[in-house]
């Protein structure tokens, strides 16, 4: 493969990886704060995509207000999920919480199915995104640059929030020791709500990007993407926001390169995330960033 095709695949991979990263951040933050794998998170991304679809094709919104609308709906769904289903089970056995998360995930998929019908929906992005331009032998669309750019901006904003604001400090403290934070007089449930707001917003943005890149929407699209995003979060180091982004990039890149080099085995690209997951568990359970949550249990 020549250099310009490689660059093309590289950029495609980074773009795909950024989308995974955006969703992975939500998983990693909720896990960090609640030790919960929020199975419904991939579906929040799907809700964002459908919300943008609804907003733009039925309400006539443009792409900018469409994204905002998607964020709004996703945040509402995410926060409601926490308030209605996760909060009451804060002190219940872990397995109850996990089962409920699965229930919510299934619920979201099927309610969208009932509301929008079973046929896949076609997402119409503004024509701006349809242009192509070439650099050398490589062909690009604008999105492929916009996605990583926006993602990095959002990531930097998030890091600034986490490390420079008091809300961010509270979130990070919660990830370390939830009991002590509660004893400090901080409203733990409110902080958790902020985590869901952040995660859902990023997932919504990821959902819109995804809808533009792969314009066929189905209610079940969030499952596979969510799984991969979670694998990316684990790869990068669950609990670390850098790690989620890094893991996403690595995964996206690997998938694209794999398909480029082995097109006849393209069907197996979905297995890559799974293989990464097993590998991490076997050789470096704390992921690349190496965050270790094992506290003294005795």
């Amino acid at each position: 493969m020549d250099i310009s095709t490689f660059i093309q695949q590289l950029i495609n991979g980074v773009s795909l990886g950024s989308m995974y990263g955006l969703i992975a951040i939500g998983y990693t933050m909720v896990y960090g704060v609640l030790r919960l794998i929020n199975f419904a998170h991939g579906d929040i991304m799907m809700v964002g995509a459908f919300a943008a679809f609804f907003g733009m094709s039925i309400l006539g919104l443009n792409i900018y207000t469409g994204v905002l609308f998607a964020i709004l709906i996703s945040v509402i769904v995410g926060v409601l999920t926490d308030k209605v289903a996760y909060k009451p089970l804060r002190h219940a056995p872990r397995i109850s919480l996990l089962i409920t998360a699965i229930g919510i995930s299934f619920f979201l998929e099927n309610i969208v199915n009932v509301l929008f019908g079973g046929t896949p929906k076609s997402f119409h992005a503004p024509e701006f995104f349809d242009q192509t331009f070439t650099i050398g032998d490589a062909i690009f669309t604008p999105l492929v640059f916009i996605v990583p750019f926006v993602t990095i901006i959002l990531l930097l904003l998030l890091l600034a929030l986490l490390y420079k604001t008091k809300y961010g400090i509270a979130i990070r403290a919660l990830a370390f020791d939830i009991k002590t934070v509660a004893l400090m007089g901080i409203d733990v449930n409110r902080i958790i709500m902020y985590v869901f707001v952040i995660g859902s917003s990023l997932a919504a943005v990821g959902g819109v990007f995804w809808a533009i890149s792969y314009p066929i929407l189905t209610p079940y699209m969030g499952i596979m993407i969510g799984l991969k995003a979670f694998a990316a979060a684990v790869l990068g180091g669950i609990g670390s926001v850098y790690g989620a982004f890094l893991g996403g990039i690595i995964l996206g890149f690997t998938e694209v390169i794999f398909v480029a080099f082995f097109p006849e085995h393209g069907g197996y690209k979905d297995a890559i995330a799974f293989i990464f997951l097993i590998f991490v568990l076997l050789f470096r359970p704390t992921g690349i960033m190496g965050i270790n949550f094992e506290k003294a249990r005795f």
């Binding site: 289903a85 409920t100 229930g103």
Partner: peptide, 9 residues
């Protein structure tokens, strides 16, 4: 799915 959630809650 609603049934499952209600049972868990």
């Amino acid at each position: 799915s609603v049934l499952l959630i209600i049972i868990m809650l």
